[in-house]
Structure formats: structure tokens, C-alpha cells
């Protein structure tokens, strides 16, 4: 077990090191690029289109966006990177006998770790606008469930993509759908009632709504919501491990 821990640690460091190797601004990019996008959304939605995408009048739109955006970045980054991890480490997978499942796990952890920098910046900004409260720490259990979901989803893609490389092309569109069909840019209330429940089919909606609850209402969402999240995370994790263990045996033959 300590060896697993060591390996995850090494792959984590390896990923972060190679990510920022030779870049002058380092982690700055990981934070600045999402910030740039947030400013873009902010400008387009609240200044150009003048829509009121969220109903909570006392919270500035920027803070509304920030409250979930970095959690979303964690999901999307980890999905994209997990999907490529087996192919990127083909040499290792083919030649060194080690538990390959560590690869998608550590890459997901790495993505989460990096986007947490943005989350911390959000919390600082939130505190400065005088809206902060102690219950903010309730995001931890939500984040934990979201992480399990991501690891599961990551394993699933990591296992399938080596067999079906063109899937990688579709992932971008899938993520776009997951992003726009979850209440990151707008609040749940902005969705016409007929469609509102349908958006819960998007797992991302579950987590994003939970963050909104914690950040703006200071409470965890209701028991059915928590239950659905736990179920979703558990399901993806189970499926991920199952499929990965099954497809894992053929990696050496196809890479």
C-alpha cells in the first residue's frame, strides 16, 4: 500500500513537473486562463447580452461564476488528460510491470490539485467581498464525491481510448455539452421548468448545484441530492475500475 502511495506521489510530481517545465510563469497559467474565460463570460452575459443569468441579486455575477468554475475545470481537465494517459505512457505500460490503474488516478489528482489554486483564489475573493462564512468548508465532502466521480470517469476513458482513439475527438464536444447544460453560467431557476429536471441527467449538474447550495446558502443540499451524488460517484467509480481492470490486459498488445 505504501508503494501505491509512493507511485501516485511520483506520478503526481512527474506530471506537475513536466507540465511546468521550462514555462516562465508556471502555475500562473493554470489560474490565468480560466480567469480570462470568466472575464469573457462575464462581459458577454452581463454586459453585452444583459441577461440576468442568475436570480440571486445580492451576489455579483463574477462571484457566481467563480463559485463553480474551478471545480468544473477540475472535471474537464481530468477527463481530457486521463483519456490520453495510457497512450502517453505507452512505453512504460508496455515495458514495466506495475499497476497501470495508478496512471488515471494520479493524473486526476494532479488536475484537481492544480485547479484547487483557483478555488483558493475564489475563497479569498469571496472573503474580501464580505460574503464568506464558516460553512464554506462543507464544499469538502462535495469535492470528495466529485473527485471519485472524476477518477471513475477518467479510468473509463483511459481504458477505452487506446482501443478507440477517435473517441478523443468527441470528448471536446461532450465536455462542451456538459458545461453548457449545467448551471455554471446560469442558475437553476433560469431554466424553464419543463427542462429543469432533465438537466439533472447531467452528472455535473449534481455537483455544481451542491456547490451553489454550500456557497450561497451555507448548507449541504437535501438528502436526496446528496444521495444522488453519492450514487453517481459510486457508480462511475465502480464502472471505471471494472472496465479498466478488464481492458487493462490488452494494453500491451495494442500500444
Amino acid at each position: 500500500m505504501t508503494n501505491w502511495f509512493n507511485l501516485v506521489k511520483y506520478f503526481l510530481i512527474k506530471d506537475i513537473k513536466s507540465r511546468y517545465a521550462g514555462s516562465g510563469l508556471g502555475i500562473f497559467w493554470t489560474v490565468m486562463m480560466p480567469f480570462f474565460q470568466i472575464v469573457l463570460y462575464w462581459f458577454v452575459f452581463s454586459t453585452v447580452m444583459r441577461v440576468r443569468p442568475h436570480s440571486n441579486a445580492h451576489i455579483p455575477y463574477v462571484l457566481f461564476l467563480l463559485s463553480t468554475y474551478f471545480f468544473w475545470i477540475a472535471i474537464s481537465e481530468s477527463i481530457v488528460r486521463s483519456g490520453m494517459t495510457i497512450i502517453e505512457n505507452a512505453e512504460l505500460v508496455k515495458k514495466v510491470p506495475f499497476p497501470v490503474i495508478i496512471l488515471p488516478i494520479s493524473i486526476t489528482l494532479s488536475c484537481y490539485l492544480q485547479s484547487m489554486v483557483g478555488v483558493i483564489l475564489f475563497i479569498i475573493a469571496y472573503t474580501f467581498s464580505g460574503l464568506s462564512h464558516l460553512s464554506l468548508f462543507l464544499i469538502v465532502p462535495v469535492l470528495f464525491l466529485q473527485l471519485l466521480f472524476s477518477i471513475g470517469f477518467g479510468m473509463l476513458l483511459a481504458a477505452i481510448i487506446p482501443y478507440m482513439r477517435d473517441l478523443q475527438q468527441i470528448i471536446g464536444y461532450m465536455l462542451q455539452g456538459m458545461f453548457f447544460l449545467s448551471p455554471i453560467l446560469y442558475s437553476m431557476e433560469a431554466i424553464p421548468e419543463t427542462f429543469r429536471n432533465l438537466t439533472y441527467l447531467n452528472p455535473v449538474t449534481l455537483y455544481v448545484e451542491a456547490y451553489h447550495k454550500v456557497v450561497f446558502d451555507g448548507t449541504l443540499p437535501g438528502w436526496w441530492h446528496m444521495g444522488a451524488m453519492a450514487l453517481c460517484s459510486g457508480l462511475f467509480l465502480f464502472l471505471g475500475v471494472k472496465v479498466f481492470m478488464k481492458l487493462n490486459e490488452g494494453f500491451a498488445d495494442i500500444l
Binding site: 477505452i160 487506446p162 482501443y163 478507440m164 478488464k246
Partner: peptide, 8 residues
Amino acid sequence: PIDRLKEM
């Protein structure tokens, strides 16, 4: 490669 996945 997809044939392999189908079969598995």
C-alpha cells in the same frame, strides 16, 4: 482497434 474492444 475497435474490433478488439467489441470483442472484449
